[in-house]
Simulated scan of single mutants.
Amino acid sequence: MTYLALAAFAAILASLGAALYFMLKGGKSDTDNAPRAGRMAKALAFRIGFSVLLFICILVGWKLGYLHPTGIPAGK
């Protein structure tokens, strides 16, 4: 489960980096901006998908008992 979470975080960061690259990539005319914006939007959509998938995997892992919350116990 730890490896899945690390892979999801890596995918989130890679997608965010790809969106940053497409956003900063220079274009000289307005016709160049449309494909770049589409690729940036697709990278950001993948990032949202990976984030939701990671959240669902953490919830499922907690419900199945694979993940245990640690930290300050309630009531102390």
Rank of each mutant, 00 (worst) to 15 (best):
M1K: 09
T2S: 09
T2D: 12
T2M: 10
T2C: 09
T2H: 05
T2F: 11
T2Y: 11
Y3G: 14
L4D: 14
L4N: 08
L4F: 07
A5E: 08
A5D: 03
L6S: 08
A7L: 01
A8V: 00
F9M: 09
F9I: 04
A10G: 04
A10N: 06
A11L: 10
A11P: 00
I12M: 12
I12G: 08
L13N: 08
L13G: 05
L13T: 05
L13F: 06
A14N: 07
A14Y: 01
S15C: 12
S15D: 13
S15I: 00
L16P: 00
L16W: 08
G17H: 01
G17E: 02
A18Y: 05
A18C: 02
A19P: 00
L20E: 03
L20H: 01
Y21R: 03
K25S: 11
K25F: 12
K25R: 11
K25P: 03
K25N: 01
G26K: 13
G26H: 07
G26N: 05
G27V: 11
K28W: 02
K28R: 14
K28G: 03
K28C: 02
S29G: 13
D30C: 06
D30A: 03
D30M: 09
D30Y: 15
T31F: 05
T31Q: 15
T31H: 10
D32W: 05
D32N: 09
N33R: 13
N33V: 15
N33F: 10
A34E: 15
A34Y: 02
A34C: 07
R36E: 06
R36D: 01
R36Q: 11
A37W: 00
A37L: 12
A37D: 03
G38H: 02
G38L: 07
G38E: 11
R39Q: 10
M40V: 07
A41G: 06
A41S: 14
K42E: 12
K42Y: 07
K42Q: 12
A43S: 15
L44M: 12
L44H: 03
L44T: 06
L44I: 09
L44Q: 09
A45K: 15
A45S: 12
F46Q: 01
R47A: 06
R47P: 01
R47N: 10
I48W: 05
I48S: 10
G49R: 00
G49S: 03
F50Y: 07
S51T: 14
S51M: 04
S51Q: 02
V52Y: 00
L53A: 13
L54A: 12
F55K: 04
I56G: 04
I56M: 10
I56V: 15
I56R: 01
C57T: 13
C57K: 02
I58R: 08
I58K: 10
V60I: 14
V60W: 01
V60C: 10
V60F: 05
V60A: 13
V60T: 05
G61Y: 01
G61W: 04
W62N: 13
W62V: 09
W62S: 10
K63M: 06
K63C: 02
L64G: 00
G65I: 05
Y66A: 09
P69Y: 04
P69S: 14
T70G: 06
T70I: 14
G71R: 11
G71C: 03
P73M: 02
P73F: 10
P73L: 04
A74I: 11
A74E: 04
A74W: 09
A74H: 07
G75T: 07
G75C: 05
G75E: 03
K76Q: 05
K76V: 15
K76C: 15
K76W: 15
